[in-house]
Simulated scan of single mutants.
Amino acid sequence: MNESGEDMAKSNEKRLDKCIEQAFQSNPEFTTWFLSRTGFANDAGVYRWSRSDNPWSTHPQETIDPATGEPVVKYVQSETDILVVFSRPNSGPFALHIENKLENGSFTSGQPERYKSRVTYWLNNPKYGAYVDFETVLIAPHVFFEKHRIDGEKFDRYVSHEDIAKYLPEFRTSGRGTDDDRVNFKIVAQTILRAGIWLIRHGYGRLMILPYAAPSGLYWRCAFHPPECFDEDVYRYTSGTKQMVLRGDPDIVMSSTMTPQALAELIAERAPRDVLALCEGKASQAALDWLQQFEKVLDEGYIPEAFNNDDDPAAERWALLGDDDSVGKMASQPGYRVPS
């Protein structure tokens, strides 16, 4: 594989790492199913903390000295792909250390063995979630597991990409990233708009939602802003960034597991404090009534656009764009004014 191919594979693997982490964070159905495949199936585990940025450390590893045949301890460096920690009602927290492999991947020498020694070394360490129990889990396509079964069985559990794909479509192609399996524009737009709705209903009742097309007509955009403050963004998105819905550390990429509430909470967490404060307050009854109408429009599959009215581009009614190129209209958000 050439360098660009290796880079692409690594990028796809990281994308799937983040996807499954977000699923644990925001998809209880997936979490319950995944835990049912582990030894913690009956522990009523609740998501507590996670990392998918390859946490690593130096740790002791017992090996056999080839010269003497005696066990010796050496210090090695290694990493976990995805670390997820869960709380449970009747005992201390437990962790899943997940190794993610793509179809054409491979194990490095001693990698499965280092998982066991590393995760044991991290027990009770607050830096890694202070877990008191753990399992190691290999997730990979069937073809990878069959090819590397001896090393694969050194993990406590194996869960196939094919099974995960029943919940997370991104895993259908083992991370090769075909366009068919990526989250499409409508899902991205709908999730963003519903995140705005969630914020209005949960303490940011003065927040304004502004969906519109770029002047070129090539991109759909959406901004959340305080009343009458079009240049002060709580949040802004352009379809030019595709599935990248929130920049930061880390960047947030839309996946099939991302819920409007999860995105809304991330937006609120990263928004400028002073700008977000201007949106605080209880939503008016007119705004709440409009949200119901807005949700109905979204349920019907439409995506709204301001400034897209053939009769009067400056009108305060928004255009509704459907799958079949149909165009409808809806009232704009109460308090909305066309920017001058």
Score class of each variant (00 low, 15 high):
residue 77 Q to K: 13
residue 77 Q to L: 08
residue 77 Q to C: 09
residue 78 S to A: 15
residue 82 I to E: 02
residue 82 I to G: 04
residue 85 V to Q: 06
residue 87 S to H: 09
residue 87 S to F: 07
residue 90 N to I: 08
residue 91 S to I: 06
residue 91 S to R: 13
residue 91 S to M: 12
residue 91 S to K: 14
residue 92 G to M: 13
residue 93 P to E: 09
residue 94 F to A: 06
residue 95 A to E: 04
residue 95 A to H: 05
residue 96 L to M: 06
residue 97 H to F: 14
residue 97 H to E: 11
residue 98 I to Y: 05
residue 98 I to D: 05
residue 98 I to S: 06
residue 99 E to S: 15
residue 100 N to S: 09
residue 101 K to L: 10
residue 104 N to M: 12
residue 105 G to F: 06
residue 106 S to D: 09
residue 108 T to I: 07
residue 108 T to H: 12
residue 108 T to E: 11
residue 109 S to H: 13
residue 110 G to R: 11
residue 110 G to F: 08
residue 113 E to G: 14
residue 114 R to Y: 04
residue 114 R to E: 05
residue 114 R to Q: 10
residue 117 S to L: 02
residue 118 R to P: 01
residue 118 R to F: 15
residue 118 R to G: 06
residue 119 V to K: 00
residue 122 W to K: 04
residue 124 N to V: 03
residue 124 N to F: 09
residue 125 N to Y: 01
residue 126 P to C: 00
residue 127 K to H: 10
residue 128 Y to K: 00
residue 129 G to H: 00
residue 130 A to W: 01
residue 130 A to G: 03
residue 130 A to S: 15
residue 132 V to R: 10
residue 132 V to D: 12
residue 134 F to W: 14
residue 134 F to P: 00
residue 135 E to K: 00
residue 135 E to F: 01
residue 135 E to N: 02
residue 137 V to P: 03
residue 137 V to W: 03
residue 139 I to K: 00
residue 140 A to P: 04
residue 142 H to L: 13
residue 144 F to K: 02
residue 145 F to D: 09
residue 147 K to P: 02
residue 147 K to L: 10
residue 148 H to Y: 11
residue 149 R to F: 08
residue 149 R to N: 07
residue 149 R to P: 01
residue 150 I to Q: 11
residue 155 F to V: 13
residue 155 F to H: 15
residue 155 F to D: 10
residue 157 R to P: 08
residue 157 R to A: 06
residue 161 H to I: 09
residue 161 H to L: 09
residue 162 E to F: 05
residue 165 A to C: 04
residue 165 A to S: 15
residue 167 Y to S: 08
residue 168 L to K: 03
residue 168 L to D: 02
residue 169 P to E: 07
residue 170 E to H: 09
residue 172 R to D: 06
residue 172 R to N: 09
residue 173 T to C: 15
residue 174 S to Q: 03
residue 175 G to E: 01
residue 175 G to S: 04
residue 175 G to R: 02
residue 176 R to Q: 12
residue 177 G to W: 01
residue 178 T to D: 13
residue 178 T to W: 11
residue 179 D to W: 11
residue 180 D to K: 11
residue 181 D to Q: 07
residue 181 D to R: 08
residue 182 R to Q: 11
residue 182 R to S: 07
residue 182 R to W: 05
residue 184 N to W: 13
residue 184 N to L: 14
residue 185 F to L: 14
residue 185 F to I: 10
residue 185 F to S: 14
residue 186 K to N: 12
residue 187 I to Y: 11
residue 187 I to Q: 15
residue 188 V to M: 00
residue 189 A to C: 09
residue 191 T to C: 11
residue 191 T to M: 02
residue 193 L to Y: 00
residue 193 L to H: 00
residue 194 R to Y: 02
residue 194 R to T: 06
residue 196 G to E: 01
residue 199 L to C: 11
residue 199 L to R: 04
residue 201 R to L: 14
residue 203 G to V: 07
residue 204 Y to N: 10
residue 204 Y to E: 11
residue 207 L to K: 03
residue 208 M to V: 10
residue 208 M to A: 05
residue 209 I to R: 01
residue 209 I to N: 03
residue 209 I to K: 02
residue 210 L to N: 12
residue 214 A to E: 14
residue 214 A to L: 11
residue 215 P to C: 09
residue 215 P to A: 13
residue 215 P to F: 10
residue 218 L to Y: 07
residue 219 Y to E: 13
residue 220 W to N: 10
residue 220 W to V: 08
residue 222 C to T: 14
residue 223 A to N: 12
residue 223 A to D: 15
residue 223 A to T: 13
residue 223 A to M: 10
